[in-house]
């Protein structure tokens, strides 16, 4: 299994409220288990505070679980050596935050390759290839982030994420900040990368319709737990858990 999350708990200590009392603790993820196979798109749906982003951070190895294990190809995510960490890459909600405004986008999207020891000529060729792959022109590599629209910037962030050939992409609300007419373009790009590169995804969103359009399977999160999981068609046509039903009623 490419990714398997086994009975993971993660809690955070909040700021102390009273001097002689223990600080309050928030359990962001409580006994969560899930798997993602090679080439599979798992959609995670949940409201703010449900623990979606904590899950993303655990999978990326930015955090270590308090209990349980997060395994990537059988190895613990937060202990992976640098070379294996490249296997997982992430795309965020706001692409402007993930691009250096003072670097050309050609530089930004091939920065991960610097660490892999690629030479300038190789990086140049790879930048052209990546831009074409995400629907931009190779000549765009000399331009800067502010010269692009929000949707184009998200394409650039995706190009950067796929540059070291990852096996798993963690996408945390990747279309939430985009205009409706551009959302579908970016979703199509992610679908195409999934189909052509076999790129597996953990696709996190609060928007059920967006998740349903891209995921093979959907897991619904609530208060740090997965309360329902199943193939997209089943979850959409016959949600079993009352909370999932309520989410659908509101959507």
């Amino acid at each position: 299994m490419l990714l398997s999350v086994e009975q993971v708990h993660r809690s955070y200590r909040m700021p102390r409220r009273r001097m002689f009392r223990a600080p309050p603790v928030i359990a962001a993820v409580q006994g969560l288990s899930l798997t993602v196979a090679q080439g599979e798109v798992l959609g995670i749906v949940g409201e703010s505070g449900s623990g979606k982003s904590t899950l993303a951070r655990l999978v990326m190895g930015f955090e270590r679980p308090d209990q349980g294990r997060v395994l990537l190809n059988g190895q613990e995510a937060h202990r992976l050596p640098a070379a294996a960490r490249r296997q997982t890459q992430m795309v965020f909600q706001d692409p402007s935050d993930s691009l250096d405004p003072r670097r050309s986008i050609g530089w930004s999207i091939t920065e991960p390759l610097l660490a892999m020891g690629l030479r300038a000529a190789e990086r140049h060729a790879r930048a052209a290839d990546l831009l074409a792959r995400v629907g931009l022109a190779p000549a765009d590599m000399h331009r800067y982030p502010h010269e692009f629209s929000g949707g184009q910037r998200q394409r650039i962030a995706i190009a950067r994420a796929i540059s070291p050939d990852p096996a798993l992409l963690v996408a945390d609300e990747p279309v939430a900040a985009l205009d409706v007419s551009v959302q579908a373009q970016v979703l199509n790009l992610l679908l195409e990368l999934n189909l052509t590169l076999g790129l597996a995804m953990l696709f996190i969103s609060h928007d059920l319709a967006v998740v349903a359009s891209i995921a093979d399977r959907i897991a619904v999160m609530h208060h740090g737990r997965i309360i329902e999981t199943g193939p997209t068609a089943r979850i959409v046509s016959a949600p079993a858990h009352p909370y999932t039903q309520a989410l659908f009623a509101a959507a």
Partner: peptide, 17 residues
């Protein structure tokens, strides 16, 4: 272009844009 819940599409076909 707005994804909908009702019509579960063929995953190999792109969404309208």
């Amino acid at each position: 272009a707005r994804p909908t819940l009702s019509a579960r599409r063929d995953r190999n076909a792109p969404l309208p844009t």
